[in-house]
Structure formats: C-alpha cells, structure tokens
C-alpha cells in the first residue's frame, strides 16, 4: 500500500478540481448562472496555451499566462452571449443554462473544426524531476500543479477579500438585489466575475494538461467533475467547494488505488448522491436560502 502516492494524488486532484469548482460556484452564486460552457472555456484556454507555446515559445510563464488570459476571454464571450442579453428576462436561470450549453456545443465544434481531432500536448511547465518529501516521492508536475493552483487561488481569494472589485463580487454573492440597490452594477460585475472564473478554468486547463492532453472535448469531464464538486459542497460556497474537492479528490485517489480507474466515476456519484440525499443543498449550503435569481 503506497499511502504517499494516494495522498499526493489526492492533493493534486483536489487542487485542480477545487479550482474548477470554485469558478463554477462563484459564477452561480453571484450571477445565478450555471456555466455549462465551462468545459468549452477549459478546452479553449488549453488551445490558447498550446498556441502560445508554439508561436511564442515553450516558456512556462508564457504558457500559463496565455492559458489564463484565453480563459478570461472565453469567460467574457460567455458573459456577453449568455448573461448580459437575458439576465433580466423571464425564466433566466433555465434559459442561461440552455444558452451556455449551446455555447458549449458551438464552441467545441468550432475547436474541432479549426484544430482537428488530434490531441495536442503542452510542454512540461515544471520540468521533469522528482522530489522526496518525508520519504514520499513526488513528481514535478504534481508538485508544481498543486503549488501553483494553491498560490493562484490564494491570490485570487485575497484579491476578493481585499479589493473593491472583490467586495462588489462578494456583495453580489450575498444578495444580488441588495447589491444592485447600493449601486453595484450587475452587468459590470458580471464581466469581472466571468473573466475571473474563466481565468480559473484556464489555470486548471494548463495544470491538467500536464497529465492529460489538449483536445476539443477535453473539457467536458473536468467540467462535470467541477460541477459535481460545487454541487456537493453547496453551490455558492467557497469553503464548501474546497471541502467537496478534498472529499472527491480523496475518493478518486482511493478508488484508483483499490478498485481501479473504471470505478472512479461510480464511487464518485454514489458519494455525491448520498451527500445530496442527506443534505439537499450540499455540505455547506443552507437549505432555505436558495438563490432566487
């Protein structure tokens, strides 16, 4: 039994999925939008990073920044197409869900049409070396992915705690109506939020592309995992998303080791269903404070 492997695997997966889940959760709670185009943003930023590595050079910083920037642009596209035109129309949550699904369909097919079905691989951002921490061998990509995810997430959370824009976003998360009463523009804030969450997706895409590849449909599975983590943690709660990410990361690495790769999703969804049956709004969601957008 290689407990060290399980733990490092769990931490890496937790960091990457947590990044995605926090993005989804923040979008939902501040805008009332379930961003189903997250997988498309993910794939798009993977391609952005790949283009940068081909045309500018395989420098880690350049690739990462390109991925994050493309992700932010993808978020802006989704915001301009699916949020701003219909956010004050009747039946908005359902229509926004369908609109983001349509964006996902169109975007993924355009990626397929433009780049072809062959997967691209990003250069190794963190080199290829192993570190020995307390007797546990950690590969460079896992360590680098975890560290950079934690670093950037901390930076973003600090920004959300301390800056004016972050205050606006947090106000929207708490109560969108009250926020608009005190003069926080819904549309303006939606642009910040979508750029921010898009850049989180870009970060996760660059990090996950260290182990997987960049492909037109590579975003769908991570998006579904991120969604389920956000769901388990309670949509709209960042601590909940972190707890959910830890739970599912541990579950995934345990299942990988003990049962095998094909049972990962099965155990994961059993876990999710059990959690949701016990707490219908997720771990840290409050039952009677559902967001009524």
């Amino acid at each position: 039994m290689n407990w060290g492997f399980i733990v490092t695997n769990a931490i890496t997966l937790t960091c990457i999925y947590g990044t995605l889940a926090i993005g989804i959760s923040v979008t939902w709670s501040s805008l009332g939008l379930v961003n189903m185009a997250y997988g498309f943003i993910f794939a798009l930023s993977g391609y952005g990073a790949w283009l940068a590595s081909v045309y500018i050079g395989p420098f880690p910083v350049v690739v990462m920044i390109a991925g994050i920037l493309t992700g932010a642009i993808g978020g802006l596209i989704v915001c301009l197409l699916a949020f701003i035109p219909i956010h004050d129309k009747p039946n908005f949550p359902l229509r926004a869900l369908i609109a983001t699904l349509a964006i996902s369909l169109v975007g993924n097919q355009i990626l397929l049409w433009w780049f072809g079905p062959r997967a691209k691989s990003l250069p190794r951002l963190f080199g290829s070396w192993n570190a020995d921490i307390l007797g546990v061998v950690v590969t460079s990509d896992k360590l680098g992915a975890s560290l950079s995810a934690i670093l950037l997430l901390t930076l973003i959370l600090l920004w959300m705690r301390s800056s004016r824009r972050g205050l606006e976003i947090r106000a929207m998360m708490m109560n969108p109506h009250a926020a608009s009463i005190v003069g926080i523009g819904v549309r303006r804030t939606s642009i910040y939020v979508m750029a921010l969450t898009g850049s989180l997706a870009g970060l996760a895409a660059v990090l996950l592309a260290q182990t997987y590849y960049v492909a037109p449909f590579s975003g769908i599975t991570p998006m579904i995992k991120g969604l389920s983590i956000a769901l388990v943690g309670g949509l709209g709660s960042i601590p909940g998303a972190v707890i959910g990410a830890i739970m599912l990361g541990v579950n995934e690495s345990l299942t990988l080791t003990f049962l095998g790769g094909q049972y990962v999703l099965i155990t994961q969804f059993l876990l999710i269903i059990v959690v949701l049956l016990i707490r219908p709004r997720g771990i840290s969601g409050i039952l009677d404070k559902a967001r009524e957008a």
Partner: peptide, 22 residues
C-alpha cells in the same frame, strides 16, 4: 423528491456521464 431545479439537472448530467464511462 429531495433535490430541486439545478441540483437535479446537474446530478442527472453526472448520471449520464457515469453511464457513458461505465
């Protein structure tokens, strides 16, 4: 019976993905 709206939609999306992978 317990979940509503989006929670259920996202859960069923997960079920579909689960079936596909299985």
């Amino acid at each position: 019976m317990r979940l509503d709206g989006f929670y259920y939609a996202l859960l069923t999306l997960g079920v579909v993905e689960l079936c596909r992978v299985y």
